[in-house]
Nucleic acid binder design. Structure first.
Lengths: 211, 211
DNA sequence: TGTACATCAGTGAACGCGCGTTCACTGATGTAC
DNA sequence: TGTACATCAGTGAACGCGCGTTCACTGATGTAC
């Protein structure tokens, strides 16, 4: 039966959200369209009224997963506005959240760069473009969120300096690599997995460590 | 027809080698057993005389891919023995080789940690165990290869200090994360992909950069 | 050393099975009058 | 405002297709005598 336009839009968004979560959990090749629509409370036949193909849905799901507001980096925005004022404390909060056992064990709600990078590299140029946009966006927001808020007369949206880009890329790459290695070793050698996370927390954000 | 024991062993090794290469190129889910045996010059039917299942072959292929002698890290052994004596120069050579466009564009002969980590995380505890062994081995060899060779009376095989482990884990995680991100963005934003590689080369091994 | 024969690595057809996609159909929606 | 009807989101069966795995068969190997 037909549903209202509002309901249809809601269903479509539900499919994208379900895909974004399931793809991060099981990989692009590990989830079928029937799994996704079932998870969204629908049947698989109607999927093609919304998306041209599974690949098109995967691209949209990847874009969605990089959405700033649902990423692990979301906390940064809040803390930048009214939260922690000290950039070093913000970095510490972010690094500890990212390199946590909880993030490692719940890829479905976690960083898409860590969960989908290897799959995206094999999924063709269009997916790579979506992925690159997400990574570039993360670099920008990550670097800006860690800038000092003083002095107040400096534009917080000014372009990144080469140094800012370099240190941000390095930190992001280390976090992504660490999370990826921690996940791959978690089931087979939990101690090594924890050691990787704890080591990188300390290396990236010195000072006290609270797991 | 039956073949000699020597030929059978050679065929089996050929299957493992083909699997190690194809899995790194296309992922564990992206290659069929028929692709692998065809690549090894055989038909798919006989595969099960050598391996219990596709998963068992995948595990053996992962183990093989981590083999020190065919890894990008292989150069380290040689250079440790009779090559570059300066640890800083060895680090530089390794980092530049690892974070090169060539390594990015040829995952089949490259680092299994970068190519298979995300797949391994989803492939069950047995695969994770194999992967964890490979990572631990890489930590050990990487750290030892970068030790100073002087003074000569210190045992080069002595256990790693906590500091050695920490800096090695950080460097490895950064290289893996960087390569993974460079691969995922290569087709969609080549400039960003190159920037990631170049930035990390400079950050991990300061001094001159030769691409 | 020679011969007869059991073994078994490899072949290629066949098997279920799950996948992405298509399609005839349904019936509530939303528009035209 | 009411009514008739075209639209189209969603359903569920059906389609090819490729996959992992099985199996009867082949014939060179390697062993027993």
């Amino acid at each position: 039966m037909k549903v209202s336009k509002a309901q249809a839009a809601e269903n479509r968004a539900g499919i994208v959200d379900a895909a974004a979560r399931l793809y991060r959990e099981h990989g692009l090749a590990g989830v079928g369209v029937a799994d996704i629509t079932r998870d969204a409370g629908l049947t698989h036949g109607g999927l093609y009224r919304h998306f041209e193909s599974k690949d098109a849905l995967a691209r949209e799901a990847c874009l969605r997963a990089f959405d700033w507001t649902i990423t692990p980096f979301a906390a940064l925005n809040a803390s930048h506005g009214d939260g922690e004022a000290d950039p070093q404390a913000r970095l510490q909060a972010l690094v500890h959240g990212y390199l946590s056992s909880s993030h490692r064990d719940h890829p479905g709600e976690g960083c898409p760069a860590a969960a989908l990078a290897v799959d995206a590299a094999r999924a063709g140029p269009e997916m790579s473009e979506v992925f690159a946009q997400g990574v570039e966006g993360n670099i920008q927001r990550f670097a800006r969120a860690l800038r000092p808020t003083e002095p107040a007369d400096v534009d917080p949206q000014r372009p990144l300096t080469p140094e800012e880009r370099a240190t941000t890329i390095t930190t992001l790459a280390t976090m992504v690599g660490g999370l990826v290695l921690a996940r791959a070793t978690a089931a087979g050698n939990p101690a090594l997995s924890e050691e990787i996370l704890a080591t990188l927390r300390t290396q990236l954000a010195p000072q006290q460590d609270q797991g």
